[in-house]
């Protein structure tokens, strides 16, 4: 049970994020929900590479040869970078939407429909 806690937390974070996305009407809060989903996925990635008592995967002066998996951390790092780019793009879109539509409410952003 305790060993699975990180995975459960990751799942809960993702669900919180998705619930935020579908219940909030403010576009910026929706992007925040997306960021929470991203945090959950990152936690999931890092948790898959964790190993009990493992050191950071740096071989110079390592206290033991038992190390956590660096691939998963590299993946999480890549995803963080991608997440920054995505969030920046989305927020800049919202900025323009707010200027042009005068509202950051998702229910007002429906000039394209039908």
């Amino acid at each position: 049970m305790f060993a699975n806690l990180p995975f459960i937390t990751a799942g809960i974070l993702i669900i919180i994020g998705i619930v935020t996305i579908v219940t909030q009407h403010n576009l910026i809060k929706m992007v925040m929900g997306l960021a929470v989903v991203e945090a959950g996925v990152n936690l999931m990635l890092v948790a898959t590479g964790y190993r009990e008592g493992g050191a950071a995967p740096i071989f110079t002066n390592a206290p033991s040869t038992e190390m956590v998996m660096p691939t998963a951390q590299a993946m999480a790092l890549t995803n963080i970078v991608i997440g920054i780019a995505t969030t920046a793009l989305l927020l800049s879109f919202i900025l323009i939407i707010f200027r042009k539509y005068g509202s950051a409410d998702v229910r007002d952003m429906r000039r394209l429909k039908g």
Binding site: L27, T86, L89, I97, K100, Y101, M109, R111, L112
Partner: peptide, 13 residues
């Protein structure tokens, strides 16, 4: 006039 940005935002999100 913001409409293309709306389309881009939906796609990106």
């Amino acid at each position: 006039k913001g409409v293309a940005v709306e389309a881009g935002l939906k796609y990106a999100f």
